[in-house]
Design a protein around this nucleic acid. Structure first.
Lengths: 224, 224
DNA sequence: CTACATTTGTGTAATTATTGACAGTTGTTT
DNA sequence: AAACAACTGTCAATAATTACACAAATGTAG
């Protein structure tokens, strides 16, 4: 009788993890990957807390949001935990990406691609600059004109769009992407987007990040 | 008599602003820049809150951490507030940067450079790849061999280092940077750094960010 | 097989962050 | 020039996040 309520509650909770927790998951995943590479089979929240410089309590609490992955008296099995977090993060499935804006950053991301190892496949770039059209980057990724964007999305099962455009075009472009069914935008444009609630946006505002660094550098200087 | 205590307290507080607040400053700065461009002279916390989609209370409280920039019954003078936030973020001074690691990302950042407008001047890149040595990028920025790193830092008043290296070399490199007096590291390497407390580090873990996006996309999908 | 050290999951406390409320000040209108 | 509306700075309340503490479970050593 109580179990039913508990169950319902859990499910509801699972869809409502705070971003504070979510932000930490990739870092856990990274450290667990390292442990795997080192051949470590099991690890306790305490050991991990020392490595990662966080509290063991936070680690246990974070993992518990998704159900218990550990065992009392034993700890966590590294490979199992690694795989589970991968699933939570959606890394067990392939994602098809397009990059909109083939400037320095767009091309760098296309060439960079450690992401492919994790199942994020870049299918194409798009740009309005006609000089770039037809250019082929590493791995045969091609730059297309903007006009082909809509068709490409529909025909290639694209779910994530990377926005590496100047501020001006970004907003307009984001609505076009959304209209064509994109459900996730990785936004490098120097502006905030305004999209429906069912579209995920992850902002990478490099300038903001650099300013934060500048503040923190200054602060430490001021202290002396 | 009381003023003295109040004063002391303020100063102490000023050096201890939470990162939650600091993270919001660049965004305020961005919106204030837009307002300036639009020719808006004054703005209330309420108006700004609508634009930025945050609470007016948070805006007032945030600004108050650094002393009051507004006036009761009037609001905030856009230009004044913009300039004050610039000062807080250390944008009133020039910063000399070097980029360590002249791969795709390093070169893209060097070429990209809207940062120069804000006083972040890239002075040079460094890489171990001999094929790149001597290559000149936009604005005359040159790629040097790693061996010249230490001298260059000392002779060119560098305060910020941008780390765009693969994971393996990043840790070793960061200690070298710190040893030569770097006080701020913008870390794009796929690993956490271990530096003394007086060195500011700002991490830009692109993979982490992408995984977060993947989680949030998945979550929205799960809901239906 | 028993005693003990280890470790998770979880309820609770403490801390931090955000929001609400309002006194006091300023600008504006009549 | 008085009355009123708009607005900040700040105190208090609420909400969210993090840390603590311990019962229950497991592995290990003697």
């Amino acid at each position: 009788m109580f179990d039913i309520f508990e169950g319902d509650f859990k499910v509801q909770e699972e869809t409502n993890i705070s971003q504070a927790v979510v932000s930490r998951l990739p870092r856990y995943f990274r450290y667990l990957g390292d442990l795997k590479d080192e051949g470590v089979e099991r690890i306790s929240s305490h050991e991990l807390s020392v490595r990662m410089n966080v509290t063991a309590s936070q680690i246990r609490q974070d993992f518990n949001h998704f159900g218990g992955f550990g065992q009392q008296g034993y700890g966590y099995n590294v490979t199992y935990l690694y795989d589970e977090i991968a699933k939570i993060l959606g890394l067990d499935k392939k994602h098809n990406l397009i990059i909109v804006g083939a400037g320095n950053l767009g091309q760098a991301l296309a060439n960079y691609m450690n992401f492919e190892k994790r199942g994020f496949i870049i299918k194409a770039l798009f740009d309005r600059n006609t000089e770039l059209h037809g250019k082929v980057l590493r791995g045969g990724i091609k730059i297309y004109p903007m006009e082909e964007l809509e068709n490409f999305i529909r025909e290639n099962d694209i779910d994530i769009a990377v926005l590496t455009l100047p501020k001006a075009g970004a907003l307009e472009c984001s609505s076009k992407l959304v209209d064509n069914g994109i459900k996730a935008i990785w936004n490098f444009a120097h502006t905030d987007l305004d999209v429906p609630g069912d579209v995920a946006v992850e902002n990478v505002h490099l300038s903001d990040s650099l300013m934060k660094l500048s503040y923190n550098e200054k602060k430490r200087f001021d202290k002396e």
